[in-house]
């Protein structure tokens, strides 16, 4: 039994993630958060969540902020818990840092 849950955005969600809210498009940060990211945290208490952000050409801030910052705003999760359990894999260092910033600023 693995002690972590894996999410690969390009494979499990979309190669073209974009936008903030569901009404603005099919690959929004809100949909990714509600359908994939939040369930990974809520349904697997105590487990780490590894999110692979690689294989995608460029993330917009709207998507990342709504997905990761929104996790704190919209769900009963604390910044400390999320930051302790979340591990961002691959992708650019600047994108990994942006995600951490969005969680801390949420």
């Amino acid at each position: 039994m693995s002690n972590h849950v894996q999410i690969h955005i390009a494979k499990d969600f979309s190669e073209y993630p974009a936008g903030r809210y569901k009404e603005h498009g099919p690959n929004s940060g809100e949909r990714f958060r509600d359908e994939i990211l939040a369930p990974a945290f809520l349904n697997n208490p105590g487990k780490n969540v590894h999110v692979n952000i690689g294989d995608i050409l460029g993330y917009g801030s709207s998507f990342l902020e709504e997905a990761f910052g929104g996790l704190i705003r919209e769900y009963d999760l604390t910044k400390e818990d999320v930051l302790a359990r979340l591990e961002i894999k691959n992708g650019l260092k600047s994108d990994r840092l942006r995600i951490i910033d969005f969680i801390q600023e949420a």
Partner: peptide
């Protein structure tokens, strides 16, 4: 870095049109 920055900017510009 440049590829990702341009694609990210483009994605955000398109996001702005819709929002």
């Amino acid at each position: 870095e440049a590829k990702h920055a341009l694609a990210g900017g483009l994605t955000e510009a398109i996001t702005n049109t819709s929002m």
